Structure formats: structure tokens, C-alpha cells
Simulated assay, not measured.
Amino acid sequence: MIRRRSREFHPNPAPAVGTASRTLLRLRLPGRELLIRRTRIAPGGTSGWHYHDGTLFVLVTHGTLDHPYLSRGPAEYRRFRVFREPSGPANTHVARNNGTTEVRILVVYVNPPKSALSHQVTLPPGPI
């Protein structure tokens, strides 16, 4: 089944701050769900630390995305860069905008059926 969504961006739930997304397409396949979303991250915005049950493919369409992993350290992706986010808690990460212009990303989720989009993780305070 294919579902198309609205054109409006909706704020992402806490602990995300300064982020909003809209779903472009949701497709249910045998054993998988494919979801395509656009996300905007305002300067200073963050997704909060989290991980995913499925694999994500991300295209940065505007700005520079700060995207460190807890286990692998810093990562930064500029406009037109495509990268893969592996699944599971071993791949806990955050998406942040440390710049002065909005970051925009297009994300393809390849998830197990009926899984949450992400699982939030609370980290102790300190630099990462």
C-alpha cells in the first residue's frame, strides 16, 4: 500500500529541538516498510541522540549536517552528500545544525514493519 502525506512540516517530538519533518511517501512491502521524509534543522537544532531499527539513507540537500556517532566519533556532511545510517543501538547518533543556515535532508527509511522511526537515548552530559 502506498500513502502520500501532506505538504506541511510538523515539529519532531522531544528531545528534538528546532527540527521539523514531513512524510513524502510510505510504502509497505512484505517484511519491510519504506518511508521517505524531508527534514529541516534550524541553526542550533538537534534531533537528540537516537538510533533506528532499520537502515536509513540520507541526502543533505542544503547546509552542513553535524552527525557524530557515539561509537565512531565526529562526522560532518555537506550539501549533496549521501550517507548510510546503520541500524541498532550500537549506531547511536545525533543530527545537529551547528551552522548559521538551515540544514535540509531527504531521508529514506528501510524499516521492519511497524517499527518506530527512532529510539531516543539519554546520554550523560559532556562533549561529544
Rank of each mutant, 00 (worst) to 15 (best):
F83T: 02
R37D: 07
S87W: 02
V60P: 03
F80H: 14
P74D: 12
R78L: 03
G54A: 09
L35Y: 05
R79C: 09
P68R: 02
T64G: 05
T64Y: 05
G73K: 04
S87E: 08
I41P: 07
R38D: 15
G44T: 08
G54S: 08
R96F: 01
W49K: 05
Y77H: 12
I36S: 08
L35D: 11
R79M: 14
H93A: 04
P86H: 07
Y51V: 06
G88E: 02
G54Q: 03
I36P: 05
P43L: 11
G54L: 06
L35P: 04
V94A: 11
G88Y: 03
L70C: 02
N98M: 12
L70P: 01
R96K: 13
W49Q: 00
W49I: 00
N91M: 07
L35G: 11
G54D: 07
V82T: 15
F83G: 06
R96E: 15
T92K: 07
F83H: 15
H52I: 04
E76G: 03
F83K: 03
S87G: 00
Y51H: 14
P74K: 11
F57H: 14
H50S: 08
N98K: 10
L34D: 07
R84S: 07
D53I: 03
A75P: 00
A95C: 03
T46N: 08
R79V: 12
E33T: 15
T46L: 12
L70V: 11
S87I: 06
P89S: 01
F80R: 14
N91E: 13
E76I: 14
L35N: 10
G48Y: 00
S47F: 02
Y77S: 05
V94S: 06
T64H: 11
R78Q: 10
D66N: 12
L35V: 15
H67T: 08
L56N: 14
F83Y: 15
F83N: 07
I36T: 14
N91L: 01
A90T: 09
T39S: 09
N98F: 08
L34C: 10
P43C: 10
I36K: 07
W49R: 05
R96S: 14
T64R: 13
G45K: 07
T64E: 14
F57E: 11
L35A: 12
A75N: 10
T92L: 06
V60K: 04
V82P: 05
Y77P: 06
F57W: 13
V58Q: 01
I36Y: 10
L59H: 14
H50D: 09
T55Q: 15
A90C: 01
